[in-house]
Structure formats: C-alpha cells, structure tokens
Simulated scan of single mutants.
Amino acid sequence: MTEISVIGGGSWATALVKILTENKVHVTWYLRRLVQVEAINDTGRNPDYLNFVKLDTHYVTASDDLPHVIQQSSTLLFVIPSAHFPTLCAGIDIDLMAGKNVLTSIKGTVGENNMLPSAYLADVFHIEERQQAILAGPCHAEEIAMDKKTYMTICSPNQDLLQKLKPCFSSRYLAINLFEDLRGVEYAAIYKNVVGLVCGMAKGQQYGDNFMAVLVSNAIYELELLLKALYVAGNRMACSSYLGDLLVTAYSAHSRNRTFGELIGRGYSVEQSQNAMSMVAEGYAATKGLYQTAKELRLNLPIINTAYRVLYNHMPVTSEFKLLERNMI
C-alpha cells in the first residue's frame, strides 16, 4: 500500500501522517482550515498541532477539498473527534465511498444512537466490517512526535487488510500488533477516555496514589463487565490495546482527558474546562454514549455514572466522589 488519504487535522492525525510519510506512503491530507493546508504544503509543518514536527513534503499533499482527498486513494484514514464525525459524513457522497477500505482512530461513540464508528460507517456508507480497521493502543501523539518507543494495535477481521496496513505504520520506534477483535477494542478505546477523565477529577481533588490504584482497578473490572454484556469477550484483557491504553490514559500527563478531568476536579465548569484546552477531550462525549449504553444493558458502572452526573447533571464533583468511594471494591 503506497497511498492513504487522511481526514483530520489535529495532533493525532499529524502524528499518524508523520509515521506514514516516514515510511514513504503518499498521503493526501484533508484539513478543514486553509491556513493549515497552506502551511503544510509550504513548510511541511502543521502550525496548530505538533508544529515542531517537519513532514516530508515529497510524500504529503494537504487540501481543504474533502471529495478530492477521498478520491485520491482506495484507503481512507479518519482521525477526527467523534462529535464531529456525523457532520463530516453528511457532506460525503455515498458513491465516493464505494469500494474503499476505511481505517479509523475515533475514540468515542457517534450520533444520537451512540454507535461505534465502525457501525456508523456500515450504516451510513454500507461499508462492511471486512473493509474496516481501527488503530488503537497506548500511543500519545506527543511521544510519537519525539520518536519514543510505542506499541500500536491495528484491528480488523480481514487478515489481508491487516497485512497491507502493517508496513505503513511499522518503524524503528513503533511496534505494530495485529488483532481481529474490532468491536471489543473499539469499546475499550472509548471507555478508557472516560477513565482518564475520572482519574483527572481525582487528581484535581488531591486524591493520592492509593485511591488512584483502586480507581483504575475498578475501571478494569467495569470494562470487563461492559464487554461481557455486549458480546463474549476474548482472553486478551491484559494486552496493550485493552489494559495498556487504559493505563496510559489514566496516568499520563499527555492525556487530554485526564487534563480535562483535572480542571473539573479543581472546580472549573465543563464550559470553562473546554475553553481552557486547545484540543478536544473525547471522554466528554464518550461519557454520554457509554452511560446510555450501560443503561440499556442494565449495568451499574459507578465510574461511568460518576462522570455522567458531574458532566451532564452538573452535580458537585466532591459529593459525587464521596459516593464513588463507597462503590469502590
């Protein structure tokens, strides 16, 4: 595979374009803002995200023309916040998506029905699971930008697609694992952002390492309950795409969800916290989607419940954590 079209202009998209161009994959890159497009084509730098990264302009062409970008490759990579995905898809002609392989790294539920990104693509564009793959794992954009050793998982039920994608992302600092559990890893990638957000709330309220360890342990248990209620989970919970991704989001200073949660824990409102950040914290939208999913499944998941009541019912974070304390095991 020598060409991929990338849709999305944030830090994670920039990190992935860096990897692809280093591997001499030709990238046509859709970014909404013309100033980003011009800067990338002129200098090889995204002025808004990871602007210290110099991309090889021989292998990347930026454009604000979405249909043009989609037409340039048989493989598309969507890297945008889940809340923006329906609006973006509404502007894409279904005929343009015919026969495309679609790779996503969208870590939130989509639309009013709280659909997985893979299910949403199947519903809107009739793209079968065999044409889809997802990127997941404990892989912050900032560390990839600095060539720090990272492990990433590509998931798809299609082994041929996995084998084509693997060399596009493998490098001296990036190890690629292949996995077939598309649905399970998608849910895990969404849930871990809620965990990061709640861990940030705990940090903002000055909880210590002892409580944080219990909180993360309970989060792992909640994830197991959620996956078992949705389908028969595999035996790979301890692998990097499940547990590893959850842990790095819970503990890392690079986690935007943890940062967002910390602001909430320190007493900022949701709106104030969002305005204080230059990037989207996916855990905010993911909380609403997973809360509704858990409710439909009749699951009592205290961590998700806490995040939802604080973020959407505007309950005091201090009193909600006192309640959460009593629900930890």
Rank of each mutant, 00 (worst) to 15 (best):
Y231K: 10
P47K: 05
A276G: 04
T2I: 15
G234H: 12
V194H: 02
I4W: 14
L226K: 02
M315P: 00
T43R: 09
L88F: 01
G137D: 04
R258E: 01
I40C: 00
T43D: 00
L182F: 14
A238I: 08
S217Q: 05
A15G: 13
A119I: 14
G9V: 06
E320T: 12
N23M: 14
Y221V: 12
G91I: 11
M277Q: 11
R258A: 05
A250K: 02
R326H: 08
M146N: 14
N218S: 02
E143K: 14
Y30T: 12
H58G: 09
A213C: 13
F321I: 13
V6W: 04
L50H: 07
D93F: 06
L246G: 09
F52L: 07
L161T: 10
M237K: 08
Y231T: 15
I303E: 01
L299K: 01
Q71D: 08
S63G: 11
R256W: 03
W12I: 14
L178V: 10
I40N: 00
T109F: 13
V60L: 00
S273T: 09
G9Y: 04
E38A: 13
N300L: 04
N51Y: 15
F52G: 01
K322L: 06
F125T: 13
E325M: 09
Q163V: 11
Q159N: 09
Q72A: 12
N275E: 08
K164L: 08
A253H: 14
L135K: 06
D209L: 12
C168T: 06
A145E: 01
F179A: 04
K149H: 15
A250G: 08
E143D: 15
V194S: 02
E186P: 15
V17Q: 07
L243N: 01
E296W: 10
I154G: 04
R256E: 07
K322S: 10
G44A: 12
P157Y: 15
H140W: 12
V310M: 11
Q163G: 08
I220F: 11
K192R: 11
M152G: 14
Q292S: 04
V185T: 10
S5H: 05
S11H: 05
R172C: 13
K54V: 14
V69I: 08
K322E: 10
N257P: 06
M97Q: 05
W29G: 09
K149W: 15
K148I: 11
M146K: 13
K148F: 12
D147P: 00
L20N: 07
L227T: 01
L178S: 07
R258D: 03
T287L: 12
L96A: 05
R236H: 09
T153Y: 13
E296L: 11
A189G: 15
A119W: 01
I106N: 00
C139Q: 10
Q36G: 03
A219V: 04
L161H: 06
G10I: 03
F78P: 09
Q274D: 01
S240A: 14
A145V: 05
Y173D: 02
T28G: 03
Q274L: 06
D64G: 09
K192S: 07
V35M: 02
Y268D: 05
D160A: 11
I190G: 06
T153G: 01
P117I: 09
I176Y: 12
L16C: 04
A133H: 02
V270E: 03
L16A: 05
R45K: 07
D64W: 01
G108F: 05
G200Y: 13
N158F: 13
T75K: 04
L96T: 04
